[in-house]
């Protein structure tokens, strides 16, 4: 599988404050792109603008050469987005949460994924009883359960312990090796990964 996402001349404003202008970069298979910048620089906003739920003033976005500026469905079908809040329903169990997001995963794959994120003992626990880090792990388990070509991970390492960070880095590595692409924002140093950096400067 090959993928190529091109961001051309993005101009994003929020509350009349310019977050970026004439920002261009591309993401292709096997590539890890890290969006860097201070708090409030607009890293999350940039990802949201790429996914099409905050408007851009100007710019063009192409997926595999096709212009998707006005309809991002092609991109949406082929990506996983994990934001600051992981989208885990507290009233549902870990298992049920994952089943909602990945209805086609087999029982075996599900257990495997839970093992990878160290939650195999919690599969029937309501998510309300999990810690913040554990909730994030539940969301991350989706990465093991669905095959999508582009990942958008907004600060995925927050609240994760050393073991979790290592597991996630390894998973990102394997995604890149299998021809996927990853867009990440993080302040944490990456130990085993060498990203291409997009800097957001005010």
């Amino acid at each position: 599988m090959s993928v190529n996402l091109q961001i051309n001349n993005f101009w994003i404003e929020r509350n009349e404050r310019q977050l970026c202008r004439d920002l261009s970069f591309s993401v292709s298979d096997g590539e890890l792109v890290r969006i860097a910048g201070d708090n409030g620089a607009g890293k999350s906003s940039l990802i949201k603008a790429i996914l099409g739920w905050i408007p851009i003033e100007e710019g063009l976005i192409r997926l595999n050469g096709e212009d998707i500026t006005h309809n991002r469905d092609l991109l949406l079908f082929d990506q996983i987005y994990l934001g600051h809040t992981p989208g885990i329903k507290s009233i549902l169990s870990v298992n049920e949460n994952l089943r909602m997001y990945c209805p086609n995963a087999s029982e075996v794959a599900l257990n495997e994924a839970l093992q990878q994120v160290n939650l195999e003992l919690f599969d029937d626990t309501p998510a309300a009883q999990l810690s913040a880090g554990q909730k994030r792990r539940v969301a991350l388990a989706r990465l093991w359960l669905t095959k999508k070509r582009i990942w958008f991970l907004d600060e995925p390492f927050t609240a994760l312990d050393a073991h979790g960070v290592a597991a996630l880095e390894a998973k990102i590595q394997s995604q890149l090796e299998s021809g996927g692409a990853v867009v990440i924002t993080t302040h944490q140093p990456l130990y085993h990964l060498s990203p291409k950096t997009v800097e957001l400067t005010p």
Partner: peptide, 9 residues
């Protein structure tokens, strides 16, 4: 809890 973001994407 962030579910709306997941609906959108």
């Amino acid at each position: 809890d962030g579910s709306l973001e997941q609906w959108l994407t």
